[in-house]
Amino acid sequence: MTEWWLLYLVLGAFAGFFAGLLGIGGGSVMVPLLVMVFSAQQFPAGEVMHLALGTSMAAILFTSIASVRAHHQHGAVQWPIVARITPGILLGTLLGTELASRIPAAWLAVLFTVFIFYVAVQMIVGFKPKPSREMPGALGTGLVGLGIGAFSCLVAIGGGVLSVPFMAWCNVRMQHAIGTSAAIGFPIAFGGAAGYIFNGWHVAGLPQHSLGFVYLPALVGLVAASVLTAPLGARLAHRLPVRQLKRIFAAVLLLLALKMLWGLLAS
């Protein structure tokens, strides 16, 4: 059991750092690696992806707090955007977790891979928005939040891979998009974690120490390390130029997409 705890700590430290650096919550990093670790622990094959998704969402709940505190200290969180988008996000997370509990694990893995690959390519291409484009009003932002919340729960991300490109598309400064995305990750994680716990509550055959689709030993290890490294990543984000941040963001996402695709082909 000791080696698994060490793996959870290493994964948490890695995910926390990138959560702070890129505002991505850490789920896009945690899910592929948790799938591998849970499979190695011989958890039920049909529930491995759901457990990875649920545990990741619960971990993001804590990681986002550490990340947003650091970004707020740099004045990079646009709280009016957070307030407008949160109601839609909360509704979307309820929809997303309900759908995720009904979709086979293999289809969830395919969805995760295709989406991450698409976002990575978009960032590499470096699409530039019109100079006049701004964030939509309360209704438009709320509808965007609905989509972000639902999709984030389907693939267990903090929303950053959606919200950061969206805000950049609306001409929000990259560092501010990352900081605001970190704050948006909290309501996504809250609603998502609650949904995965509820939908997995009566599922038979889950490993011991599971709370619905949240595996508690992994959660403890992930959180213990990620809350320490998330502020480090956030501080670095405010020292790097925008173009370099975008390249790092795209490279990390592309590597994750290729890793998930390799896993799908191998299985």
Rank of each mutant, 00 (worst) to 15 (best):
P44D: 10
L261T: 13
M174Y: 04
A13N: 05
G26M: 14
T141S: 14
Q73H: 12
Y215T: 02
W262D: 10
W262I: 13
G92A: 13
V77W: 01
S64E: 08
L258D: 09
A19E: 10
S56M: 12
G191W: 09
G54R: 14
V82D: 04
L232N: 01
A194P: 02
M49N: 08
H209P: 00
L139H: 07
G145I: 12
G96W: 15
V242E: 11
G160H: 01
A45Q: 15
Q122L: 11
A45M: 14
A257Y: 15
L261Y: 13
G195N: 05
A19H: 08
I103F: 14
I24A: 09
G221M: 05
G263R: 14
V214S: 02
T86E: 06
S64W: 04
I184S: 00
L22Q: 10
I24C: 10
V77F: 03
S39C: 05
L211R: 03
A182E: 03
G16P: 03
P44M: 13
P187G: 02
F117A: 15
V121I: 15
M260P: 08
R133P: 02
L256E: 13
R239M: 07
G160I: 06
T63K: 12
E134W: 03
L255H: 08
I103E: 03
F115N: 09
T113F: 12
A66L: 06
V214L: 02
I197D: 00
A52N: 09
T86K: 06
G46R: 12
H176S: 04
G126S: 06
S28R: 13
T2L: 12
V31N: 03
A224C: 07
H209T: 04
A15P: 01
